[in-house]
Design a protein around this nucleic acid. Structure first.
Lengths: 235, 235
DNA sequence: AAGACTATCTTTAGGAG
DNA sequence: CCTCCTAAAGATAGTCT
């Protein structure tokens, strides 16, 4: 009914909306829009895509074709990781740090590999023993256990080194960043920040206004078939 | 240029585009559109978001605010815990890096702890059973084994993330920070850090773009399923 | 807070260079 | 592969129910 004097859309500057209630409405509308666009892209072009959005209140919304996990997985595993190149910092103290870190990483990797092999062997071996009715043979997992502990040790070490390395880098570039940001530490890492005791999705980003975002464009990588589509209820 | 008979937009059905060349053009345009929308959503509403798109030819494109890793990590772990005050470096790229790294480190710590506990329990339990003469009880190490494999997976992931973060921090500083609307500039992540590009992951494409895609909306933590033994060792 | 409406702004198919 | 153009299709801010 009514007057036809309805207002139409007004141009909106792309900057943080301060009005909470409008922000919420816009968020909902735009979120839906993005999801729709993403699904259209998938349908039209046969692309695989994932969209993950955390509302300002940290609720999660996501879209994925064929599903989020698969896409994220491919993304993660498709980004080749190179060890750090000490040469780029040749002669500096950093070079030494990187060198140490690299060694740590290498050892870590070796361990992982060894463990994977070990796991296979273990499984196979046990299966074999079981098949033969030698289900009592058990010294095997004490070995397993030792490896596990070694692994833990290595991880601790890695963590320490990474912390130290990061701290060093941060101090060096302090000019730009300024301020005394809490230092990375191995021990006191339990200082929970964020205050609120939300059971799950809490994000402490509060103050941050920035919204630059990062965009990347990587050459390629073949992908593997992952199917599956889990359905999930809306909330 | 003769005729000014320019055609305007035509309605397009939302179904797979068969014409390869048109598909490519549409893909490019729509992909850019989605990225833009996502960044606008982040700016307007202060949301965190990540978009990952695989072209039909499996090239990867992504957007993330504050960065893909962080959002994906939060999505995967469902519990963003902050240990550093993000505000101290609010808005800077470093803040994002530190945050992501911190998350990884926390997870690492948790893993180590869990495994140490596990190791103790295992050892104790077995000892107890052995003492009681129940040396036949062995289902225990099948569990052990599963955990081991999961651990390996996580370490792999950890390594990836740590490496990337470190590299990012090292290369930063020279990188001009484009202000303004996030330019969808290409940041060649694959640029060699260690020397050369190694062949990385493989995966079968099977362009089957299904169709639908899955949309989810959860206030709580999503499932953390990511089994799949991705083959190949990147790195 | 959820829909409906509408005027307007934004995206993009198709085509040309 | 791009960029630019046009005009139609689509998304949506503001408003009212």
């Amino acid at each position: 009914m009514a007057a036809s004097n309805r207002q139409g859309r007004k141009k909106l500057e792309i900057k943080k909306i301060e009005d909470e209630s409008r922000l919420g409405v816009s968020f909902t509308k735009r979120r839906a829009g993005i999801m729709k666009k993403a699904s259209e892209l998938c349908t039209l072009c046969g692309a695989k895509a994932a969209v993950i959005i955390f509302s300002p209140k940290n609720k999660v919304y996501s879209f994925g074709n064929p599903n989020v996990e698969s896409v994220v997985n491919d993304y993660l595993s498709g980004n080749p990781v190179r060890f750090l190149d000490p040469r780029s910092a040749a002669g500096t103290q950093q070079a030494a740090n990187l060198q140490a870190l690299n060694e740590e990483l290498q050892r870590l990797e070796d361990l992982v590999e060894a463990h994977q092999r070990q796991a296979e062997v273990l499984d196979e071996a046990r299966q074999k023993r079981v098949d033969k009715g030698m289900w009592w043979d058990q010294p095997i997992d004490s070995l397993n256990l030792r490896q596990l502990e070694e692994l833990s040790d290595k991880m601790q070490l890695l963590k320490v080194n990474v912390c130290r390395e990061i701290n060093k880098q941060r101090t060096e570039g302090a000019a730009a960043v300024a301020d005394d940001i809490p230092t990375f530490a191995v021990a006191p890492m339990n200082t929970v920040y964020g205050g609120d005791n939300l059971p799950i999705n809490v994000a402490g980003t509060s103050g941050g206004g920035g919204a630059e975002g990062e965009i990347r464009d990587v050459p390629s990588l073949p992908d593997r078939n992952h199917s599956g589509a889990s359905g999930s209820g809306l909330n």
